[in-house]
Each structure stands twice: as structure tokens, then as C-alpha cells.
Design a protein around this nucleic acid. Structure first.
Lengths: 138, 138
DNA sequence: CTACCTGCAAAAAGTTTGCAGGACA
DNA sequence: TGTCCTGCAAACTTTTTGCAGGTAG
């Protein structure tokens, strides 16, 4: 356990938000009381946290892997807003059951799954907000 | 409609297999009776086919986008073997229904979804075959 | 003391894009 | 003829890796 790993783990588990590797790198590349960590170390440590089951990769909305806590949290999936990028968690006992039944029939051994539902969140699907958004971009 | 686009479309819709962009590029970079297409054109055309709803991206098993026909084919999802990479299609009326119900409750407007179930296919989960596989790699 | 870890910078892998010339209609 | 398309190569993005020096235990 090194200083770098400890600051990475602290930052990752400070809250239960979803995050991207690059964003974490950005937060950790500015020194916090002489503690910081480099890009390479952040990626290496994230890989270890995933391997050890503390984190999992949940989606890839913009070609960047999104991570979330996996230890002690129930299985769930995500709705992903294509406009603002928000991730909404949702529970799914039945879906797992359906998938498991099918897998059993064909002898497939499930390790995990990933359900990504794309669309527009309540906010972004309001016409007026959408129009403002588009104008803002010009 | 150019020669290049027509050969790409022909190749893509020649069968109903899943495919990766790079593999398609490889097939099309060798001339077929003076007809071929470059990497850039293949990527550009694939993007258009996805936008127009003829293709969709279904998974990303090895950091490469996997495409399949979307026009005229029923909604389905995939089991993905982590060992051999095989994609197994499976139908899922109930899953869509469950997701739609939840989305409706929170005002989320679904556009599409992607369920990727990872694990080992019947073949690869047989202990003996696995052992052979590992030895083969050395 | 030894093994493992870090940072840097360069490499990788897949995909996108600028540009100059070429094909479609 | 004008516009859109193609091919090449270079650019880009995210993530990984080689290497030389540093830290944990």
C-alpha cells in the first residue's frame, strides 16, 4: 500500500458517484497537500480495483469507460441520457432471472452483465429545455 | 451512390453475421474484380448505415465495436463468451417491458438499449477444452 | 535489501479527419 | 460543372507499457 494508492482509493470512495478515469486523473494531478498521483498510476490502480471486485465498469457513453463501486452494492443497471450523460441506476431482479434461465438452457455460464438503456432523461426530453440547449451550442 | 458504397453495402449484407469494422476493412482492402474500398471510406459508410438505421452497434467485447443488421430484425440481446468471443443472440420481450415500465415512471424516454451478458459459452466452459486452450497459447 | 511501485514519455489500438484529386449526376 | 466522395496519411482519444529511479516493509 503506497501513498499514491491510498490517495486514489480515498478519492474513489469519497462518494458513491459514477466517474471516468480521465476525470479522476484530473482531480488527482493537482497536488492535495503534497499528495498526488500520475495518470499511469491511476489507470494501473483502477485496473486492480476492478480485478479485486471493489469497482466495476458500467458503461461507455462517450468512448470512455465509466466506473462505479461494486463492493457491497446490489446488482443494478443504468439508464443513460444521450443528451446530458446522466446515469440513472435501476434495480432488476427479474431481468437477471430471465437471462439466467436462458443461459442455463444453452449451457452458458454467466459471469456478469451490463444493461445500458439509452434515451433522454426527464429533464432533457422537455421540448423547451432542448431548444435552449441547442441554441446555447451555436 | 458510389462504387465504394455499393461494394461495402454488398459485403455487409451478404450474410447476417456480426462483424467488426476492422475485419470488414480487411476483406475490402483486397480488390474484388477491381472493386475495393479504403479504411476511411469503410468507417464513413458504416457510420452512415448506423445513422440510417440499417446497422447497429451491439457490443464491444475486445475494444472493437461489433455491428449487426438492424433493419427488419427483431429486437434481441447478446450473450458474449469471454473466452472465444462468440456472440449468441437471444430474444427478450419481457426485459423490454420491465425497462419500459421503469422508464415511464421517471419520465425517461427510451431510444434503445443494449444488454451484454458476459461469461463462458457451453464450449469454453468445459474444463478439458479449457485446459487445452490454455496450453495451446503457450 | 529486494521486490514492487511510480512517473514520464512514448507506444498502441481503434477511429476520425484535412486535404488534394476524382467520380457522380 | 458543381458537389459530394475517396484515399492517403496524419491526427486524435483513451489506455497501456518500457524504463530508470524511488519507496515499502
Amino acid at each position: 500500500m503506497t501513498q499514491e494508492r491510498s490517495i486514489i482509493v480515498e478519492e474513489v470512495f469519497a462518494d458513491h458517484e459514477h466517474f471516468e478515469a480521465d476525470e479522476l486523473v484530473a482531480r488527482l494531478s493537482v497536488a492535495k497537500g503534497s499528495r498526488r498521483a500520475s495518470r499511469a498510476t491511476v489507470y494501473r490502480t483502477l485496473g486492480q480495483l476492478v480485478d479485486s471486485g471493489l469497482l466495476r465498469k458500467v458503461a461507455r457513453p462517450n468512448d470512455r469507460e465509466v466506473y462505479e463501486h461494486d463492493y457491497g452494492y446490489p446488482q443494478h443497471d443504468h439508464l443513460i441520457c444521450k443528451d446530458c450523460g446522466e446515469l440513472i441506476e435501476f434495480q432488476n431482479d427479474k431481468i437477471s432471472a430471465i437471462v439466467e434461465k436462458f443461459a442455463a438452457e444453452i449451457g452458458f455460464r454467466i459471469q456478469d452483465h451490463r444493461l445500458e438503456v439509452y434515451g433522454l432523461c426527464a429533464n432533457c426530453s422537455r421540448p423547451k429545455k432542448n431548444r435552449n440547449r441547442k441554441l446555447d451550442r451555436i
